[in-house]
């Protein structure tokens, strides 16, 4: 795979390719901030018997305070979700923008993703070459849909608990029992997934270690872009659109700020992961 090392650009000044728009970066910031907030205020409830849950609860002023913050972050995340859905409808349906629902730049899974999963895993164990990826690789699409589905499921079950008498108008009685199980299990899955799988796949794996800055700065070096999203790079080059995707190199202040924010987020996430795992296997 040494041909992917990008030796051709080594002598040139490093160029940066835009991957995320500012709106997408802010959306991710709102998403992970509210997700961390929801996890930090939801986990103590799930593991209410553990010492750390009680200590945290005492620290912030008991369950009343925890519930207030949980609902606060829930509303923030709900608004972000609605803005995102509106964006999809606007771009995909109203503006009929190409590449939203299908094609190489879409988040929707396609046949190539299925082949990629198999090929990638064959490469893991040395049975084939490493597949090349488009703008969104299959694990990135999974991340996206896991969060999308998670927000629908956790959000709905959360609001059903919050406004139980209202939801009882159209939900059967047993569903009011089920929403707590759904909310808590799906949230646990989301927390375990984000703080272990997403962190490793996106940030900690050797290709990105210690953190993939592209979601914070919006750009990645041409070399990295070519290495990670080879097919998109080739497609851009073939269509002569690469120049249009060029962005400015991120300022050092921007990188430093992003690193601080990112590492804090990862630190909180990993702390919550450890607490979750100790409580889960401790009880």
């Amino acid at each position: 795979m040494s041909d992917l090392a990008g030796t051709t650009t080594a002598n040139q000044a490093q160029r940066f390719i835009r991957r995320f728009t500012p709106a997408q970066r802010y959306m991710h910031a709102v998403l992970f901030t509210s997700f961390l907030g929801l996890a930090a205020t939801g986990l103590p409830l799930r593991f209410r018997e553990s010492m750390w849950a009680r200590a945290l609860s005492r620290l912030v002023g008991g369950f009343g305070a925890i519930l207030f913050m949980h609902k606060f972050f829930a509303i923030i995340l709900s608004i972000a979700f609605l803005i995102h859905v509106k964006e999809i409808i606007q771009r995909g349906i109203i503006n009929r923008e190409k590449g939203i629902f299908w094609g190489p730049t879409s988040m929707v899974a396609n046949w190539k993703d299925v082949k990629d999963v198999i090929a990638h895993m064959r490469w893991f164990i040395g049975l084939g070459p490493k597949p090349e990826f488009e703008r969104y690789a299959y694990w990135e699409k999974f991340d996206y849909w896991a969060v999308f589905w998670g927000m629908v499921v956790i959000g709905f079950s959360g609001y059903a608990m919050w406004f139980a008498p209202f939801f009882a108008h159209f939900l059967p009685g047993w569903a009011l029992n089920a929403v707590l199980v759904i909310h808590s299990e799906e949230a646990l899955l989301a927390i375990l997934f984000i703080f272990s799988i997403h962190f490793v796949n996106t940030h900690i794996r050797p290709d990105s270690f210690p953190m993939d800055m592209v979601i914070f700065t919006g750009v990645e070096s041409e070399e990295e872009f070519k290495h990670k999203r080879t097919l998109e790079y080739k497609r851009m080059q073939a269509a002569g659109k690469l120049e249009a995707r060029l962005g400015e190199a991120p300022g050092s202040y921007q990188v430093r700020f992003s690193k601080i924010v990112g590492f804090i987020a990862i630190f909180i996430g990993l702390t919550l992961l450890v607490l979750t795992l100790t409580s889960y296997f401790g009880s």
Binding site: M1, Q14, P206, D207, K226
Partner: peptide
């Protein structure tokens, strides 16, 4: 696998 490639084949980590 990714770590193995980095060490064995001097596969760079994308710049």
């Amino acid at each position: 696998r990714a770590r193995y490639n980095q060490i064995k084949h001097k596969d760079q980590n994308g710049g």
